[in-house]
Design a protein around this nucleic acid. Structure first.
Lengths: 251, 251
DNA sequence: TAGTGGTCTAGACCACATA
DNA sequence: ATGTGGTCTAGACCACTAA
């Protein structure tokens, strides 16, 4: 009697912590506000720092928090909706999309990419790197793989690398008639270079969007885009904004 | 000279470990094979168990490993492609989709859902629970929120809850003319009940697919589907299989 | 009952940002 | 120089599975 928790399942501490913190974020903190540091939070809740960190990790995974080394932990703004799929299918780089060309190189792609393109595993392809900006921040980094067979007219007169070369590859690609495309989304962790481009640590959770472009009866190009999973919500069709949680209340 | 690593950035141990393990998985292990236990692996690599676990965690996140308490760590099969978006838009539950009705209840949804449906925050809606099966495993759990206004003809004669009630709600919903729909995908962590349905621990990483169904000029229903992020690759359009990495070599 | 992964602790040191 | 989050250790105990 009185011991009302006799038959309760022992809920992990970090899980309970996460719930408590989550509610505190809703009610007591504003977006951008900085939280007490991990050592103090851990002390305040009477747990080891590692346990506290386990809770923070999950909240960051859910896009509620943002942690930066040397700075602190802040309350994250609601995720931004990023339009990924639209009704009409187009080649990358046509008129007004919010991708910025970075550079272009000729290199042997990973085996998985070579298989998808049906090129030989030792065959070099054009790899165009692009970055997607949204609200002033980089939200995605992309590698667009274009087999040399897809852009046969690519002149040797163009710059051998850099943004100019990238532009040339895209221009040639757009001459083909796009017959279709499909996409896949999966969870991954950021490679070192992508992490740097996205201002995250290597291994940060990302959403991998793989797009195959079909032309001339084959896969004419393959894009692998790496989106920040903490700050992005990928939208398909319509692209209308979805309101979210209690954050809806202002700012 | 000879000290070739003077200016190398100190790569974290768990990151290097992950790379080594990843390569070992490709070359020395078959899908389903069980790895040595964590204590032995840690000893073998000369690191603390926590560090080893950090590497395993990432590999699990990437769908390379599967860990089960009391059993061990096994090599995961390649992710299964799950078709999420198709060209033609349809109501949930029409003819042959691979969702199984679980039950149905009348309850007040979370504020975020109420806002999206433009119902009052205290207004009860029908909540249909469904489970999606693929290859004999549950890959997703869904809550389909249907405002009472969307199914006004729902007879009180039908069962008050359970699969029969769920069927009735979907049947009434399908009478409306579907005017459009849109989707969003984001990263989340599994709620306790979803985790149980998906045979995962609470907090496991999941892909949240939010679908809005439009009819009669408003949002007539809203679905929130929770997909296992470790085993699923969500496909949009076409639904064709994408070949993957070295796993492509058989089964 | 034995062995597995999951949780938790109390430290330590490091890399990074800022003042 | 200080303070932050990131990495790492060497333990301990618990929850779960399967023999």
């Amino acid at each position: 009697m009185g011991t009302t928790q006799l038959e309760t399942v022992p809920e992990p501490k970090y899980w309970h912590l996460k719930t408590v913190l989550s509610e505190a974020l809703d009610s007591e903190f504003a977006v951008g506000e900085i939280l007490p540091n991990e050592r103090e939070l851990a002390a305040r809740f009477g747990v080891a720092r590692a346990t506290l960190r386990q809770a923070l990790e999950q909240l960051e995974l859910e896009g509620r928090l943002q942690r930066r080394r040397g700075v602190g932990t802040t309350v994250a703004p609601p995720r931004v909706g990023v339009a990924v799929g639209t009704e009409q299918q187009t080649w990358p780089g046509v008129n007004g999309d919010d991708w910025q060309l970075v550079d272009c190189a000729l290199a042997v792609p990973p085996a998985a990419v070579a298989d998808a393109l049906a090129t030989g595993r030792d065959e070099e392809v054009h790899i165009v790197r692009r970055t997607r900006m949204s609200h002033g921040h980089a939200v995605a980094a992309e590698l667009l793989h274009v087999p040399q067979a897809s852009v046969p007219e690519l002149s040797g007169i163009d710059a051998p690398s850099g943004p100019a070369r990238a532009r040339a590859v895209l221009r040639e690609l757009q001459r083909l008639e796009l017959e279709g495309q499909d996409r896949a989304v999966e969870l991954g962790s950021a490679r070192a270079d992508d992490a740097k481009a996205l201002d995250r640590l290597p291994g940060a959770p990302v959403l991998l969007v793989t797009t195959r472009f079909f032309a001339e009866g084959r896969t004419a190009a393959l894009s692998v885009a790496t989106y920040r999973a903490d700050t992005c919500r990928l939208t398909f069709g319509g692209g209308v904004e979805i309101h979210h949680g209690p954050e809806t209340q202002a700012s």
